[in-house]
Nucleic acid binder design. Structure first.
Lengths: 242, 242
DNA sequence: GGGATCGACTATGTATACCTTATTCCCGCT
DNA sequence: AGCGGGAATAAGGTATACATAGTCGATCCC
């Protein structure tokens, strides 16, 4: 009888997150391994909630692709979605597609407004760099700052439709982004290309053509996917293939 | 006590659809008017189900944008999303964006495979035309045939990621597509441009460049949005503005 | 007469109970 | 010993019960 946060902070000291947010975190951060089978009763127990909210969370995560049907049985079974480089590429590219298409709209803005957004993005990128360049970057913070840069673009340029799609794509992206930074470091790869690409975005937003803006954003995401893939390759090689 | 389809076919004679599918239909077909407030108990009553499955359906439809938060109150309230031409444009354009980007992949296929898909699309389009040209086209059938044409493209060319996004965009698209055909007829506008654009897609799939394919698809969706907007304008004018 | 306050009602969020069915494991039979 | 069947188990789907909180309405006071 889990009655209203029954004192039992269920292990992952989830502050005050609902079932969805908690489960999302567990998957994104890898606390639930890819491929792990999940059942509603087990998750409910782990989160200290009843099946009802857990079930809703699991259904949503399934729509978002973080949980997938598992086993060939007739009975619905669910597992944490596997991590897959090709899927990562598709996620990054699609993000670039949507974010880039929306950002073309800046060319219909006044020069003032474009400069304002460009400046905000420059600042956001600087905050990101500050974290990235620090001695031992906090992964969560690195993730947050990078996310903030792109989110700013989305917030200001996306239609409600593409915003909704990017939102539903968010969890999948977050899952790969979560270890993108740490993995780059592990593989000894530099962050510099990212800075450069962000800079190109800032410049394009300030005074480029619509194609410039879209290209800069899509290039950034496409290259990010390749950098991630390369980092995974090197990390695998360093550890001994797996 | 609605115990397992209690004989009470709740009005809209829903064959064997689950709560989500039923509610989706009600919204898509306009049986629930845009702006109408929905409460879980009321919908549960109407569908002859308990709140649990209804609640899940409503949450999903909210994620998909067919239901929206309503009223300024603190209490979560939900209403059927309004119909909006600008949103329709965004939906159509984003569909074209995703479908078009995926379809570029055909240029990496063998000529044989491309011809096969092109032929299948030509056949699908012909079936669509047959319906459209009939005396009194069944809206549901017209919708289904048009959907089948584009679905074929998605099924064969989209990545799992863009497929998922198109799937989550589907309900919103379906809502506008549902009365697209009937509205064109009402406004006395021809279907011919659609045939032409579908033909262009077939040709591009058969032997065009990646840009050709993408352009043909995006053009089709962009123009479809404009045709819908025009049909709405004319229908409004004919009826007397509203 | 208008506005504020109090109370009943109603909807949401969550927990729990029940039912059905697939899966699994064990036992018996061949 | 292997295979098949059946009982126990366990999980999903649904219904319902309960707690909480907001909303609406009515009444009372200013």
């Amino acid at each position: 009888m889990p009655s209203r946060r029954a004192g039992v902070t269920p292990q992952s000291a989830a502050q005050e997150l609902d079932a969805y947010a908690q489960l999302l975190q567990l998957v994104v951060r890898g606390d639930l391994a890819p491929g792990a089978r999940l059942t509603e009763p087990a998750v409910a127990l782990r989160l200290g909630l009843s099946r009802t909210p857990v079930r809703e969370a699991m259904q949503r995560l399934q729509l978002e692709g973080l949980l997938v049907p598992a086993g060939g049985g007739e009975r619905p079974r669910v597992a944490v979605a596997p991590l897959d480089i090709d899927e990562a590429r598709a996620v990054y590219q699609t993000t670039g597609l949507l974010e880039g298409a929306g950002a073309r709209a800046v060319t219909e803005w006044t020069a003032i407004r474009r400069r304002t957004l460009a400046t905000a993005l420059r600042v956001a990128d600087e905050e990101f760099r500050d974290i990235a360049r620090s001695k031992a970057p906090d992964p969560a913070l690195l993730f947050a700052k990078h996310h903030a840069f792109h989110q700013r673009i989305v917030d200001e340029t996306a239609t409600s439709v593409s915003r909704a799609l990017l939102h539903s794509l968010g969890p999948r992206l977050a899952r790969y982004e979560w270890f993108h930074g740490p993995l780059l470091q592990l593989a000894g790869l530099p962050f510099a290309p990212t800075y450069d690409e962000h800079h190109a975005i800032v410049i394009a937003v300030r005074s480029g053509t619509a194609d410039d803006v879209e290209t800069a954003i899509r290039t950034n995401w496409t290259n990010a996917a390749e950098r991630l893939a390369e980092a995974i390759r090197r990390a695998r090689a360093a550890i001994g293939g797996g």
